[in-house]
Nucleic acid binder design. Structure first.
Lengths: 327, 327
DNA sequence: TCTAAGGGTTTGAACGTTCAAATAGCGGTA
DNA sequence: TACCGCTATTTGAACGTTCAAACCCTTAGA
């Protein structure tokens, strides 16, 4: 049986009304008399009618598509695919679909924005991996396009204010550090990323803050190493810190933490709760990714469907500590 | 600066030709005289024209979208996200975009097919995770819809023949087994999945085959355990096999292999080369996922653009052994 | 000279939807 | 009776593209 195309005209004929009335039942039900509405609904049901998004888009300029960049996985220890899964699901619930694109850097991503807008007119973009001097957000904002970032706008000047959803990295590392303090540790090291990474600096700040709470140890600054994020550098950094007297380590990522674990039997806490952490029993901070995805969609629907708010939405979620073997 | 909409009519005006000629330059360049073609191309360039896919789709019924289901990640030790990344890239090269959906089981996936076809009319579907009695493929085939599966049609009856791309699991485990034989092992165990999983049985068969090549050991069948795929059962199975005299283990997945590693210091080889394997130094079989993605797209473009072949394409790729610490 | 053929280009219509404006029906008021 | 105002519904047009058919021009053959 070939898939028969059911159009709004077919439904109209069946329900003995005009095309427009059917359209109204679907889009502005309150314009239609109760009885008619029911009749139309039944016809829709019986014929299995589904709105043709291409035709709708032609008329309204709305595609019901959200464009998302699929991230390059280097070591696979990232968090993006779980976020994407959540996004697909919550978008679907709100009547949107996710369309993917890939790009190597900001510039080529912007070129892709242009491409996509010409060809598919996504209603909004979801950006991940925000960073200092992010030109993507300004490009979109200048053109008045709808978007939300999963990640704060790090170091944005005045006016660079846009909707975002993020996870409070500092709260996470602070919780991790307190967990170690509670276990009696007093010399807790931190292995981070190079300065200038918004996410990395944020995570570091939680460790600093938590140590500050504890009066006994204020020489914190020295028990710290920066790495490129690889397990190899993580291990080297961990050895140095242990030699310097650290009895426990908080790490900026699971990848680094994995390296640190090789340095010796000190408690280690990672960040992101990747599958690797689960597999090797690494205590880690878990980002509420489904929740983040839900919030991203909510921010966007508010932007697209309700009258746009005068202040952009900002959502900051807290990660949770998943305690395993290593701490 | 607001994004100006450039239509085919704008280009036509600029190049002093009709709409249709512009359309021909884009779609059937050989119909247009060299000189005119060049003039049109320049106008396209200058105005930054991009075809409006919604309008095109209205007329032709072609959306240039490929629909893919985003897989539920249980333990995150899967292979799908890398495949998806490759698919997004090679689809883009061929002028297609990937649209995502999610579904909990075959039935709800079929309902989603219907939904998507009504609303977005994807030109084709890419299915993953084929299995015995897969009703999705027959649903699509009955309706004459274009699709390719990443995974063979396990145990399909006559007529159930469709295009597919897959990785030769048996060749992989055979290579792994030979690698262990070459290292001098004679009692090589296999930890698998329950019987009836197409993929699992295939991977097992490679181990059987490779052992058969070696005349010395034909009591192979006993050095074998089936598990639910968890690391916990993997560890238990490994202990039993080691107790039974196995000196090396081939595993159906990295997850199981991870468990097996905990059972003792015998060589272990996993399957899929997940980030976890890389992180813990597990020797594993790597699927050529980008290549698989490229081939999926190629199969589909042939199906959609060239006159459809009378025989469906079948592509079987070989995994490669990534040797690390554990074997 | 007339007709045929064919390459290159243009014209009108159509895809399925929704916007904007028009129309019908009906009760109430002047 | 005539008119107004309101609600419920219908009609025509338009979104941007491509298909199908028509048209124009040149060249070739009868």
């Amino acid at each position: 049986m070939m898939p028969e195309k059911v159009t709004i005209a077919d439904v109209a004929r069946r329900a003995n009304v005009s095309r427009q009335t059917v359209s109204n039942v679907l889009n502005s039900p309150d314009l239609v008399r109760e009885e008619t509405r029911e009749r139309v609904r039944q016809a829709v049901e019986e014929l299995g009618y589904r709105v043709n998004q291409a035709a709708r888009r032609m008329r309204t300029g709305r595609s019901r598509l959200l464009a998302v960049r699929i991230e390059q996985t280097q070591d696979g220890m990232n968090v993006f695919d779980r976020f994407l899964h959540g996004l697909t699901e919550s978008a679907a619930k709100a009547g949107y679909r996710v369309i993917l694109y890939s790009a190597d850097d900001d510039r080529s991503e912007i070129a892709t924005f242009d491409d996509l807008l010409g060809a598919y007119e996504p209603d909004a973009f979801v950006l991940t991996g925000t960073h200092y001097g992010d030109v993507r957000t300004s490009w979109l904002a200048e053109r008045g396009l709808a978007f939300v970032t999963f990640g704060r706008p790090w170091g944005m000047p005045e006016g660079g204010d846009h909707p975002w959803v993020d996870v409070d990295g500092a709260a996470g590392t602070a919780a991790a550090t307190r967990h170690l303090l509670d276990a009696g540790h007093r010399r807790i090291g931190f292995i981070g990323w190079p300065e200038g990474s918004g996410v990395g600096d944020d995570r570091r700040s939680g460790w600093v803050r938590a140590l500050g709470e504890d009066a006994e140890d204020s020489e914190a600054g020295v028990l710290e190493r920066r790495t490129d994020g690889s397990a190899a550098e993580g291990e080297a950094a961990a050895r140095e810190l242990i030699a310097a007297g650290a009895t426990a380590l908080v790490c900026v990522s699971d990848s680094v933490a994995l390296g640190a674990m090789q340095a010796g039997p000190v408690p280690v806490i990672g960040f992101d709760d990747t599958p690797v952490a689960a597999a090797i029993g690494l205590t880690s901070l878990s980002q509420p990714l489904s929740e983040a995805a839900v919030r991203c969609v909510r921010v966007l629907t508010r932007l697209l469907e309700d009258d746009s708010p005068d202040k952009p939405d900002h959502v900051l979620l807290r990660p949770s500590l998943v305690i395993r073997r290593t701490a």
